[in-house]
Design a binder for these strands. Structure first.
Lengths: 199, 199
DNA sequence: CGCGACGTTGATTTGCCTCAACGATTGTGG
DNA sequence: CCACAATCGTTGAGGCAAATCAACGTCGCG
């Protein structure tokens, strides 16, 4: 994959979400680096400072957390056309609490902390752009919270399928269970019940 | 309560969280309005556009959501030294999905959408300040999500008490249950079990 | 005073977890 | 290239956490 060819995708993302002037787009693009990561490679680990934020061109990654009982809690799946990164660790440049790792070979455009700060300094419009971007993530998190607080596992899974129809074919099922906040066994049972109903 | 007297509180908030130059603080303060609301008054309702964001000086409010089954899900309690508002509705100026209402007589410093846009335009530093503020909320939401996904009701309640020791004395208990994502009856049972253990 | 909102308690049910056993698939080292 | 291990998903039995339903006491307020 050639970096120049990836500009249209980035442009398309912003056109659909946070329209920004062509020159700003170009500046951002220039500050970013095309990175290819094999499957199962880590972007951030707990204790380390998250050094990049990335726009995913192709592939898929997940963000997860290991709680006190020692089990993994998947916070987020990020695939094509999504951003990833540990917002808290990146912006405060503090050790992360999260794992982020690829689940497929993944191509992404990354930006480092320094480059981003540089953008803010040189083109204040980026303060606004990234403020709007984080507001988008905020709305997303809010939905997820309400869903976990008030819906049954069954419904959450259905909702997940509607929203991410291709993800179940791309990632191990127990990661999806941990995203939904249920045990792998129980997700399996939900699935088999659904299959019976359909026939 | 006199508006001038409230400046130190606002200053104190920023000193502790997002230090900002004195002149910027003054600009912000001037753009804000001191508002007093009686208990049980609404700031936003679903369908309306959320017109203000507010810093609470005294009192307490809650943000909630009514789901498909018709029950209330409390997303957030905001008391002294916290901000409230429907970020999504406010920044996009779109109809809100949330209710926000006071639970006590509440004094707050409010800022309207227009005034805030004006601040952004006149003092670009505010883009940064509010970007940092929303990152703070983001981290908060993230914690809450992880907690709901992976901890027992018992533990979540304990955590709530540690973090907001005064709230149980100030708001009806069933609102707390809905914040924790459990039924009012079950919260009552958790409490009585705790009381027995203590004796 | 009497009503409605709130919290409590107990009985019952249900959603989800844990544990254990078992195939199927994948991957890896000899 | 095969053998064996490791990982993954499924299934069933049993148990526990939390919901639901119903009855009741209390309080604040019109």
């Amino acid at each position: 994959m050639n970096k120049q060819d990836t500009l249209p995708k980035l442009k398309d993302f912003f056109d659909r979400n946070i329209p920004l002037p062509e020159p700003a787009l170009i500046r951002l693009f220039e500050a970013m680096e095309l990175v290819k990561l094999p499957s199962k490679h880590s972007i951030t680990q707990p204790g380390e400072i998250c050094t990049i934020e990335a726009y995913i061109l192709k592939g898929i990654a997940r963000t997860y957390f290991i709680n006190e009982q020692g089990d993994e809690v998947t916070v987020h799946f990020a695939k094509e056309d999504w951003w990833i990164g540990d917002v808290a660790s990146f912006t405060l440049q503090r050790p992360s609490l999260l794992h982020i790792e690829t689940l497929e070979e993944t191509y992404m455009l990354t930006i480092s902390y320094e480059r981003k700060e540089q953008l803010y300094a040189e083109y204040p419009i980026f303060e606004r752009i990234f403020r709007l971007m984080i507001q988008r993530t905020h709305a997303f998190l809010m939905n997820r919270l309400v869903s976990v607080l008030s819906e049954s596992a069954d419904k959450r899974y259905q909702y997940f399928l509607d929203r991410y129809p291709d993800v179940p074919q791309r990632v191990p099922q127990h990661y999806i269970a941990s995203y939904l906040g249920i045990s792998p066994e129980f997700l399996s049972k939900i699935r088999s019940k659904k299959a019976k109903l359909r026939s």
